[in-house]
Deep mutational scan, measured.
Amino acid sequence: LVRYRTISKIPQITLNFVDLKGDPFLASPTSDREIIAPKIKERTHNVTEKVTQVLSLGADVLPEYKLQAPRIHRWTILHYSPFKAVWDWLILLLVIYTAVFTPYSAAFLLKETEEGPPATECGYACQPLAVVDLIVDIMFIVDILINFRTTYVNANEEVVSHPGRIAVHYFKGWFLIDMVAAIPFDLLIFGSGSEELIGLLKTARLLRLVRVARKLDRYSEYGAAVLFLLMCTFALIAHWLACIWYAIGNMEQPHMDSRIGWLHNLGDQIGKPYNSSGLGGPSIKDKYVTALYFTFSSLTSVGFGNVSPNTNSEKIFSICVMLIGSLMYASIFGNVSAIIQRLYSGTARYHTQMLRVREFIRFHQIPNPLRQRLEEYFQHAWSYTNGIDMNAVLKGFPECLQADICLHLNRSLLQHCKPFRGATKGCLRALAMKFKTTHAPPGDTLVHAGDLLTALYFISRGSIEILRGDVVVAILGKNDIFGEPLNLYARPGKSNGDVRALTYCDLHKIHR
């Protein structure tokens, strides 16, 4: 019993810090008490220290592992850092350059016999395009090294910054494609005289377009951006097909006994025919423009016929181009109408809503002055909100995010209106959640004399007048207030005048 009563005193000691020596009952000389009392004092002292730490809000209350900052290894790049964003855009520009100039170089340097010394005699450094290609190869190699040090988000939505895990993730992902696209074939085969082989191998750079397509997928929600990307894709495919079309004609031209190829026909049409040795002929500019003209006309199913396939190889390629053109029509131009419709969806919704308003007016036989006010209010409210119901949009977000959005939407009023000066951010967040926005066209009466005042109004834009009878008592403008002081009276009061809008007004109100 003594032991039980001794232990039962522990909660009292913990909360009230009572010393055991003052209790005459606990001072009985028993061996059990002498053993338990020192333990009680020690526990009391420890609990006292913990309570003191909690009340003082000291940093040592938290466990040590929670006080440590997340460790980022040296030379690790955050995937959302500004440097990584700028670097990704730079790589994107280099990939676009590669997609345009690599097929052009591979096709127009394929057994090209233009006048001038061969590239091997001039030297590697004197070729501007080769120098640019070398810079692109170096940048792609540097990009691989950067990807080995860039964080990523795993399946659990955690940012991984450990170098080993980053390397394994990159090896399992895009490393092989990036490595093949970054191989400097110019340096590996330079001086061997195989410019045709170098041009063909350099087309491996186009593998990076797969990554670019995935990154550009984030802009699919913007109709104008999608339309622009589709047109660029169409032009890029036409450019690639033009390079292939020229390569076919250029390879067949020296081996044909009869002059029936499209390059021969082009030379005869523009007065620059090929001679018996295969030299001469149109310039590279004429060849490229004509090839691009043929691919565009074939892809769009126009086909004027002034550039036509004559050999079997050219006919087979033309059939493939027609098939590609039909697929592009289905996948690209078939979506253009939907994209344009999405661009004008706001206008369509406006006309639909206006039609419903006019049908309501016609069905209920609203008189002319009231009908005009109804239409003007709808037009003004639509121009202010673009038909978007803010309350319906915010309803799907958590309250903390709703408060931040409301604070942002009402920031101008909260910053410049005098009653809100000096208020804490928590108070402003709470008030912003209570605001209701209303609009009024010129001549609209917001409050009639004798109406119950259940709200306090803040003028965000425009001006109003307060009338008693036919006498203008006051004219209020931006950041002015009218209405009933909230919670100042037990019952809502009545208006002693009319409140009429002089201009288009936007008002925020808080109800009782």
Rank of each mutant, 00 (worst) to 15 (best):
F234D: 03
I405M: 01
E221A: 05
L209F: 12
T347R: 10
R211I: 01
N265W: 01
V136K: 07
K285T: 14
E359A: 05
P118K: 15
F171Y: 04
F228W: 04
K215E: 04
V212S: 04
Y288I: 01
S308C: 04
L327C: 03
G173H: 13
P118H: 09
K172D: 01
I141H: 04
W174K: 05
M328Q: 01
F190Y: 13
C232Q: 01
E375Q: 09
I166P: 01
N312L: 01
G116Q: 15
E158P: 04
F296I: 13
L236R: 01
F108M: 08
I361F: 01
E121A: 14
G325L: 01
G173I: 01
P117E: 05
F228L: 04
K202I: 01
C427F: 04
G123N: 15
C232H: 01
V180Q: 01
L94Y: 01
S313K: 02
S308G: 01
R358W: 02
G123S: 05
K395T: 14
Y97W: 05
G164W: 14
M256V: 12
W87V: 01
K202R: 04
G249C: 01
A106Q: 15
D88C: 02
I324F: 08
W382F: 04
R342M: 07
Q253C: 06
E376H: 15
I284A: 03
W240H: 01
H364N: 13
T437C: 07
S192G: 10
Q341M: 11
T203Y: 01
V180F: 08
F420M: 05
P128A: 11
Y384V: 04
I189F: 14
G281Y: 03
M256I: 15
A125R: 14
F171Q: 01
L263Y: 03
L292S: 01
Y246H: 01
Y222M: 04
G280P: 01
V289N: 01
S283K: 01
A130T: 05
Y344A: 07
N154F: 05
P367L: 01
I366L: 05
G280N: 01
S412Q: 12
T352R: 12
L94C: 15
S81K: 14
N250W: 06
R218I: 05
Q365F: 01
S283Y: 01
